[in-house]
Amino acid sequence: MVSQYGIKLAVHLINNHFGNLVAKVCENLLRRGPLTLQLIVRYTELTPQQVKNSLLILIQHNCVQAFSLEQEGGLEDGPRSNTQYMALFNNMLHRMRFSKFLEIVSREFDEECKGLLEGLLQHGRLTLKQMVERAKDMAERAKSTKKEGKSFVKV
């Protein structure tokens, strides 16, 4: 069970990182437990689009987990599937420690590893393809800055 001060801290963190809209959705999920999209829209009094975007961000950053419940009694032939969203409190608090994680990785491993972790912390979740592309970009940027530095020294 999450205490009220824990919820306040988590909401503050999310507000700081992703803005007040996302924090509002997050607070409702933390206080009321798993909810459906319709219920979140009703409780937050935001537009459905705003709530959808907030949920996308929260899921992307592993602060919310979506799961579907299949219930019998759907209007059509199959059972009715009901998607619910659950806030992940511990993951929200871990956001405080991101800089610490980065520091430990940079101390233990090389700069490349730090870059990979930084990308993951910034974007929450990335595919392997995205990570490879990002690493390539970083390497090219580092090369170009070195070249620029050299040419500047020459000039």
């Binding site: 992703f18 803005g19 007040n20 809209l21 610490k100 980065l102 520091e103 912390l121 910034q122």
Partner: peptide, 23 residues
């Protein structure tokens, strides 16, 4: 100081990114 700097850097990234939604 390194931790503070890193966390400020991350926060600035999120604030400038598409992840930041504000009413």
């Amino acid at each position: 100081e390194t931790l503070v700097r890193e966390s400020a850097k991350l926060r600035n990234f999120w604030k400038a990114s598409a992840y930041y939604l504000e009413e």
